[in-house]
Design a binder for these strands. Structure first.
Lengths: 336, 336
DNA sequence: TACTATTAGTTAAACGTTTAACTTAAGGTA
DNA sequence: TACCTTAAGTTAAACGTTTAACTAATAGTA
């Protein structure tokens, strides 16, 4: 591979100093004559010069790169978030390094270390709450939380959804539709979202004067296999229900599959309510009634917020934005 | 934010030279006494020193970062690939920057430029063939192609699937099941995959002495809306068929939806064969018969190959690996 | 004329590492 | 004793930029 063309080469060939070339590249050209400016620019194009970002970053301490730490890109909830973040980032000239943690603290810590070393300018983070509260002090860079809240106060912002209110609205809808015995299959309780959704489920029941009983809630993970398995558990305990609120759409899909195998039909025999409205949700039979989260927007706004902080170099203290995005109950055919 | 702790700080505090610290950090410590070694290591831990990768990269010309250029992470075919690549990369201490091109040449070129500037050590690339052949000469870094082949000869490797053979096997299966009039809804003809799958469809028909007629093939995009629309087009032309081979699972799902709305049932009235075996495929009603691609493995192997080239600094000429992964016909319930 | 401003640059230090070449002291060998 | 080897470092250049501080020449002004 041929050697990279450097500023030095350009400067030498043009008979100017390196600083002149640098200034032209960075549009700090108030003190450069139009003639030299175009001459240098042409030379740059001709020689195919591209600036070395390493060298630049070394002095500016900005890498124009952000990190995106999520549990698993393979979970259909996350690609849209990632896409939103990437679209916004690239619009502002940033690249994004993505990291899958599987909600494992160890992987999470490792990525934090790596991203710190790589000197990313900031991080978008859907963190696991496995340890009571993540230690964000490890970060010396701005971080914005998505999807999952945390009490940690050294983050510059959050882009969330009101999981409790959304769940409450969803379960209330179920109640209004006449469902009497509503079970809840929760996702991983390691996440704040699962805790909030449980709280919403509970509040909906209470406010409608219906009993809240932990017998009717199963706690597991956010995978469709868990939805499938949870149904078996309910059956073992011979618990009967006429509707199930599921922690996310994947769980809902697994549950529907299990019910179908037992000859129980949705929504005829039991109603199913999902959460997220992933792409899949409209493709299943029956299409899922679910609570939509604006996933793309979540990623987009998070990147926007983060980049804003980075560029303004706001102190973390200054302004901690908390953006709450709207959810929407999407009524399809898994409920009557 | 506090200043980064540097090697200089460590060296000064320990009363050694910077070079000593550097050598210890990089395990080039043959000439370092065990005593100093542990002393420095302890100091590093105590002060929380992390090396500045920018500075290092500036001299070594390695960033331990690779790029992943794909059309769209939101397309369920790609997350698994991305995950495979990321898993392998992080195992070897590499990070991955991901880029969505939407198969737009302009975005593609832009990312190539950015990744070059950021000095990634290599690129994994699912490229669009919109322009006859992509100009990989823009790259001064190793690149491995995934999913879509190209005649370009300045790539260090490819990880592919034999789309033609796989399609031929799939369509042959359809024929063996007794289907007589098999249509094909193709994805974007900008991609080599779509072209190869068409070739396979054609060969299957020909080798079984069945007529190949372009009336029965519709060319569009890899989105489920296209599958839906293609059915309307067939109807307008009042073409009848008893099976459809779809360019991917998304198309298949869209087609099934359109058929269902017209009261045509799968597989009773028409059989449907998909491609990819995305997660969705087993969740739909009916679950899709489809040709599975080893997506995770594709990403994993591509990263493995790329990193191998990077670390060995093989010349591009030396060894151009072409890895062909096995596909598998997964028979579910969308065919009889 | 003497002074100030403006234009169009240049100089050189700094960013935090890596690494080839050198040094110095102690120990071994003939 | 004189010479060689080895261990345990040190020195200094290099990587490719950015940027604050400086300069030199010309134009404008009182």
């Amino acid at each position: 591979m041929k050697r990279q063309v450097t500023m030095k080469d350009i400067a030498k060939e043009a008979g100017v100093s390196i600083a002149t070339v640098s200034m032209i590249c960075n549009n700090k050209d108030k003190n450069i004559s139009e003639a030299t400016r175009t001459r240098i620019l042409e030379l740059i194009a001709k020689r195919g010069y591209v600036p070395n970002v390493m060298a630049r970053s070394l002095v500016t301490k900005k890498t124009k790169t952000i990190g995106l730490i999520i549990p698993d890109i393979t979970n259909p909830f996350f690609p849209e978030i990632a896409r939103g973040a990437e679209d916004m980032a690239s619009k502002s000239g940033y690249s994004v390094i993505y990291c899958n943690t599987d909600d494992k603290i160890k992987r999470q810590d490792n990525y934090i270390k790596i991203l710190t070393e790589k000197m990313v300018d900031g991080i978008i983070f859907a963190h696991s709450a496995e340890k009571a509260e993540a230690d964000f002090n490890k970060f010396r860079i701005p971080i914005v939380l998505i999807d999952r809240d945390s009490k940690a106060d050294n983050v510059v912002g959050r882009v969330l959804v009101d999981n409790e209110a959304a769940s409450m609205a969803g379960v209330s809808y179920l109640i209004q539709q006449g469902y009497k015995k509503i079970a809840y299959i929760a996702g991983s309780m390691k996440t704040k979202t699962a805790q909030d959704r449980l709280a919403g489920y509970r509040r909906a029941l209470m406010e409608h004067g219906m009993p809240y009983d932990l017998k009717w809630v199963k706690k597991g993970s956010y995978r469709s296999q868990w939805g499938y398995d949870a149904i078996q558990e309910f059956e073992k305990e011979s618990l009967s229900f006429d509707a199930i609120f599921c922690g996310n759409d994947l769980i809902a899909i697994g549950a529907i599959k299990a019910l179908k195998e037992k000859g129980i039909y949705v929504p005829k025999d039991v109603g199913i309510l999902g959460f997220d409205d992933v792409y899949l949700a409209q493709m299943t039979t029956p299409p899922l009634t679910t609570i939509r989260q604006p996933k793309y927007e979540m990623g987009y706004r998070a990147a926007e917020l983060l980049i804003d902080v980075i560029e303004k170099e706001k102190k973390q203290e200054e302004k901690k934005e908390r953006i709450i995005l709207d959810t929407e109950l999407v009524i399809r055919q898994s409920t009557k």
